[in-house]
Write a protein that binds this DNA or RNA. Structure first.
Lengths: 197, 197
DNA sequence: GGTAGATGGTACCGGTCGGTCCGATCCGAT
DNA sequence: ATCGGATCGGACCGACCGGTACCATCTACC
């Protein structure tokens, strides 16, 4: 957790290190749950360095949420891709990946949605909307390849299952949330692909 | 018992007024987005009165979330009950009620989940879990009366749709979120009630 | 009219907030 | 050997935080 500055003074590396450590601490404590001073001691960096890299606390938050969105989105997309070409398999893989996330002891819900729930800054709302948009694209693609009658609608319903499962896992009971959502998702997928049955 | 009434101006009414006004302001601004001083001027009450009724800011927050949970839960239950005895109709009524909520210009997601996303206090987490539990009871009851093979599982899946629709409506696009979720819910209900088809 | 509780208004408290600044130190390149 | 950028550690700032104290005022009941 302390700054592991390799052999070089490398601003880019310092920035990345701050980002990674700050993400963990702010996720655990909440954006307003820790001040900049304590945050800096926890991640082992001076206030001046943090402010030189990110300007303001809000700047750090935005950079961190943006990075988190990209990481999580590609992580889900890769989980789907690794499951092969069958849309049903890809969808199941997405929810299996989510369940693994829910089982992480530090899981506290989606960091981006948590941030949007408390921070009214426009930049955060923009990042959040785009984040959900990326999820929607992934799920709509699966719906489309499954031959759904109305892929955008099914994609949206699957997005609701993803987000709903995350909320339930975070605030009610994480055990089996991913599996329950996966089963519901596959039911919707089948019904949409063969509406006559 | 004749005693007790030493009161004069009606503290209970004052308390209720504070609770109602504070709910609106804190929902709009976020729990940490406004200080007690400004909050008091906004709701037209002195700090001393507020602190005498609720002890601390956290006390106010907890009382407010508890009241909100009860109001919203009974509101949804009544919407379902008003739809008659058919489980499918009741379920549809729930999502129709949600869509009306989403269409409110001040809609910013579920106040209770928003609070839980930022506040790590145990009392808030407890209120949130219980709140979701009440939703779950309502939906599991519908699932059961619909003859679902496994009412608890279907109830949980329906809960995910409710919460997912709320998240999507709050942070992505409110238009038609309730309708999309309703359609998905009815599909799940049909599939669970007649698994052989 | 007297009295007691409820309230408003306001000054005040210690602490913490986000953010700035400066000197000392470290490091890689020259 | 030296120099310049990156970093650290901490002092410092004004503003605001949640919370308390005090007092004048108001209102309902006697």
């Amino acid at each position: 957790m302390p700054v592991t500055k390799g052999s070089t003074i490398d601003p880019a590396r310092t920035r990345a290190t701050i980002l990674e450590a700050a993400t963990a601490v702010l996720y655990e404590r909440g954006l307003d749950g820790i001040g900049v001073a304590e945050l800096c001691t926890r991640i082992g960096v001076s206030k001046e360095t943090l402010y030189r890299h990110f300007g303001t606390k809000d700047g750090l938050v935005e950079a961190m949420l943006q990075a988190r969105s990209e990481r999580v989105t590609s992580w889900l997309a890769e989980a789907a891709a690794a499951a092969g070409d069958a849309p049903g398999e890809q969808l199941a893989a997405v929810f299996d990946a989510l369940q693994r996330w829910y089982d992480d002891p530090v899981f506290r819900g989606c960091a981006i949605l948590n941030a949007a729930a408390q921070h009214h800054v426009d930049a955060v709302r923009t990042i959040t909307a785009r984040h959900l948009g990326h999820y929607l694209d992934l799920l709509t693609g699966i719906a489309s390849r499954a031959g759904a009658v109305d892929p955008p609608v099914l994609g949206r319903q699957l997005l609701m299952l993803v987000e709903g499962a995350t909320v339930v896992a975070a605030h009610h009971d994480a055990a089996g949330a991913g599996e329950a959502a996966r089963q519901a998702a596959l039911t919707l997928l089948s019904a949409a692909a063969r509406p006559s049955l």
